[in-house]
Amino acid sequence: MGIYRHLIFCLALILIGQQAQAVAGQLKEYWGNMTSPRIELPDLQGRQHSLTDYRGNVVLVQFWATYCTPCRTEMPTMNRLIKKMQGKPFKIVTVNMAESSEQVRQFLQEVPVDFPVLMDSDGSTLNRWKVFAAPANFILDKRGKIIFTLYGAIEWDSDEMVGRLNALSEE
Protein backbone atom coordinates (compact mmCIF):
# COMPACT_ATOMS: atom_id res chain seq x y z
CA MET A 1 0.00 0.00 0.00
CA GLY A 2 2.87 2.33 0.89
CA ILE A 3 4.32 1.96 -2.58
CA TYR A 4 0.97 2.82 -4.18
CA ARG A 5 0.54 5.90 -2.00
CA HIS A 6 4.02 6.95 -3.03
CA LEU A 7 3.22 6.35 -6.68
CA ILE A 8 -0.01 8.38 -6.50
CA PHE A 9 1.82 11.19 -4.72
CA CYS A 10 4.52 11.23 -7.41
CA LEU A 11 1.92 11.24 -10.18
CA ALA A 12 0.11 14.12 -8.48
CA LEU A 13 3.39 16.04 -8.28
CA ILE A 14 4.06 15.45 -11.97
CA LEU A 15 0.55 16.66 -12.82
CA ILE A 16 0.93 19.78 -10.67
CA GLY A 17 4.30 20.42 -12.29
CA GLN A 18 2.78 20.09 -15.74
CA GLN A 19 -0.01 22.49 -14.81
CA ALA A 20 2.49 25.04 -13.56
CA GLN A 21 4.37 24.64 -16.83
CA ALA A 22 1.14 25.14 -18.75
CA VAL A 23 0.55 28.47 -16.96
CA ALA A 24 4.08 29.61 -17.67
CA GLY A 25 3.79 28.19 -21.15
CA GLN A 26 1.12 30.72 -22.01
CA LEU A 27 3.85 33.32 -22.19
CA LYS A 28 5.32 33.06 -25.67
CA GLU A 29 8.79 34.23 -26.50
CA TYR A 30 8.51 36.96 -29.08
CA TRP A 31 10.48 36.48 -32.28
CA GLY A 32 9.20 39.46 -34.24
CA ASN A 33 10.73 42.91 -34.42
CA MET A 34 12.20 43.21 -30.94
CA THR A 35 11.77 46.95 -30.57
CA SER A 36 8.32 47.81 -29.29
CA PRO A 37 6.37 50.27 -31.44
CA ARG A 38 5.79 53.63 -29.85
CA ILE A 39 2.84 54.47 -27.64
CA GLU A 40 1.94 58.14 -27.33
CA LEU A 41 -1.58 58.28 -25.98
CA PRO A 42 -3.73 60.20 -23.50
CA ASP A 43 -5.31 58.59 -20.47
CA LEU A 44 -8.94 59.12 -19.47
CA GLN A 45 -8.03 62.40 -17.78
CA GLY A 46 -6.33 63.66 -20.93
CA ARG A 47 -2.77 63.32 -19.57
CA GLN A 48 -0.35 62.28 -22.31
CA HIS A 49 1.68 59.09 -21.76
CA SER A 50 4.68 57.86 -23.69
CA LEU A 51 6.04 54.35 -23.47
CA THR A 52 9.55 55.80 -23.32
CA ASP A 53 8.63 57.27 -19.90
CA TYR A 54 8.58 53.70 -18.57
CA ARG A 55 12.12 52.77 -19.68
CA GLY A 56 14.11 51.14 -16.91
CA ASN A 57 11.07 49.11 -15.87
CA VAL A 58 9.76 45.76 -16.91
CA VAL A 59 6.43 46.73 -18.46
CA LEU A 60 3.27 44.75 -19.05
CA VAL A 61 1.45 46.38 -21.97
CA GLN A 62 -2.08 45.13 -22.32
CA PHE A 63 -4.62 45.90 -25.05
CA TRP A 64 -8.16 45.34 -23.84
CA ALA A 65 -11.81 46.21 -24.41
CA THR A 66 -14.90 46.53 -22.23
CA TYR A 67 -16.71 43.86 -24.27
CA CYS A 68 -13.94 41.37 -23.54
CA THR A 69 -15.18 39.16 -20.70
CA PRO A 70 -11.74 37.68 -19.81
CA CYS A 71 -10.37 41.25 -19.50
CA ARG A 72 -12.95 41.96 -16.82
CA THR A 73 -11.98 38.80 -14.96
CA GLU A 74 -8.24 39.30 -14.97
CA MET A 75 -7.97 43.01 -14.16
CA PRO A 76 -8.28 42.46 -10.39
CA THR A 77 -5.35 40.03 -10.65
CA MET A 78 -3.33 42.79 -12.31
CA ASN A 79 -4.14 45.10 -9.39
CA ARG A 80 -2.84 42.44 -7.02
CA LEU A 81 0.25 41.92 -9.20
CA ILE A 82 1.16 45.59 -8.78
CA LYS A 83 0.99 45.18 -5.00
CA LYS A 84 3.12 42.04 -5.12
CA MET A 85 5.71 43.79 -7.32
CA GLN A 86 5.83 46.93 -5.14
CA GLY A 87 9.35 48.31 -4.89
CA LYS A 88 10.45 46.51 -8.05
CA PRO A 89 11.03 48.22 -11.41
CA PHE A 90 7.74 47.01 -12.84
CA LYS A 91 4.79 48.88 -14.43
CA ILE A 92 1.52 48.08 -16.11
CA VAL A 93 0.20 50.15 -18.99
CA THR A 94 -3.11 49.27 -20.61
CA VAL A 95 -4.53 50.51 -23.89
CA ASN A 96 -8.25 50.46 -24.55
CA MET A 97 -9.16 49.37 -28.05
CA ALA A 98 -10.83 52.41 -29.57
CA GLU A 99 -13.92 52.55 -27.40
CA SER A 100 -15.56 55.72 -26.13
CA SER A 101 -14.54 57.42 -22.86
CA GLU A 102 -18.06 56.81 -21.54
CA GLN A 103 -17.84 53.07 -22.15
CA VAL A 104 -14.43 52.86 -20.47
CA ARG A 105 -15.45 55.05 -17.49
CA GLN A 106 -18.52 52.93 -16.88
CA PHE A 107 -16.41 49.76 -17.02
CA LEU A 108 -13.84 51.19 -14.60
CA GLN A 109 -16.57 52.04 -12.10
CA GLU A 110 -17.39 48.36 -12.01
CA VAL A 111 -13.79 47.17 -12.23
CA PRO A 112 -11.50 49.80 -10.65
CA VAL A 113 -7.85 49.55 -11.66
CA ASP A 114 -4.56 50.77 -10.18
CA PHE A 115 -2.76 51.33 -13.49
CA PRO A 116 -3.01 53.78 -16.38
CA VAL A 117 -5.68 53.20 -19.01
CA LEU A 118 -4.73 54.87 -22.28
CA MET A 119 -7.23 55.67 -25.00
CA ASP A 120 -6.38 54.59 -28.55
CA SER A 121 -9.35 56.37 -30.04
CA ASP A 122 -8.58 55.66 -33.71
CA GLY A 123 -6.99 52.24 -33.26
CA SER A 124 -3.72 53.36 -34.83
CA THR A 125 -1.60 52.20 -31.88
CA LEU A 126 -3.12 48.75 -31.75
CA ASN A 127 -2.57 48.47 -35.49
CA ARG A 128 1.11 49.26 -35.04
CA TRP A 129 1.32 46.61 -32.34
CA LYS A 130 -0.55 44.09 -34.53
CA VAL A 131 -3.30 43.35 -32.08
CA PHE A 132 -6.20 41.25 -33.40
CA ALA A 133 -7.46 39.64 -30.20
CA ALA A 134 -8.20 40.71 -26.64
CA PRO A 135 -6.68 40.72 -24.19
CA ALA A 136 -3.36 40.93 -26.00
CA ASN A 137 -0.37 41.22 -23.68
CA PHE A 138 3.24 42.19 -24.26
CA ILE A 139 6.02 41.99 -21.68
CA LEU A 140 8.83 44.45 -22.29
CA ASP A 141 12.25 44.28 -20.70
CA LYS A 142 13.88 47.29 -19.05
CA ARG A 143 15.24 48.46 -22.42
CA GLY A 144 11.77 48.51 -23.94
CA LYS A 145 12.12 45.38 -26.02
CA ILE A 146 9.24 42.92 -26.35
CA ILE A 147 10.37 39.64 -24.94
CA PHE A 148 7.11 37.79 -24.32
CA THR A 149 3.57 37.94 -25.64
CA LEU A 150 0.45 36.37 -24.26
CA TYR A 151 -3.02 36.08 -25.74
CA GLY A 152 -5.90 35.55 -23.33
CA ALA A 153 -6.49 36.03 -19.66
CA ILE A 154 -4.42 34.55 -16.85
CA GLU A 155 -3.97 34.95 -13.10
CA TRP A 156 -1.35 37.66 -13.25
CA ASP A 157 -0.65 37.46 -9.52
CA SER A 158 0.13 33.73 -9.53
CA ASP A 159 3.40 32.78 -7.84
CA GLU A 160 4.69 31.54 -11.18
CA MET A 161 4.08 34.84 -12.95
CA VAL A 162 5.33 36.98 -10.07
CA GLY A 163 8.49 34.85 -10.01
CA ARG A 164 9.10 35.33 -13.72
CA LEU A 165 8.49 39.07 -13.61
CA ASN A 166 10.68 39.39 -10.53
CA ALA A 167 13.50 37.58 -12.31
CA LEU A 168 13.12 39.91 -15.31
CA SER A 169 13.13 42.99 -13.12
CA GLU A 170 16.42 41.87 -11.55
CA GLU A 171 18.19 41.33 -14.90
Binding site: K28, Y30, G32, F132, A133, F138, T149, L150, Y151
Partner: peptide, 9 residues
Amino acid sequence: TAPDPGSEP
Protein backbone atom coordinates in the same frame (compact mmCIF):
# COMPACT_ATOMS: atom_id res chain seq x y z
CA THR B 1 -4.28 29.37 -34.92
CA ALA B 2 -5.40 32.09 -32.51
CA PRO B 3 -3.70 35.34 -33.54
CA ASP B 4 -0.52 35.95 -31.55
CA PRO B 5 -0.07 39.47 -30.24
CA GLY B 6 2.51 41.25 -32.36
CA SER B 7 2.07 39.02 -35.42
CA GLU B 8 -0.07 39.12 -38.53
CA PRO B 9 -3.00 36.70 -38.36
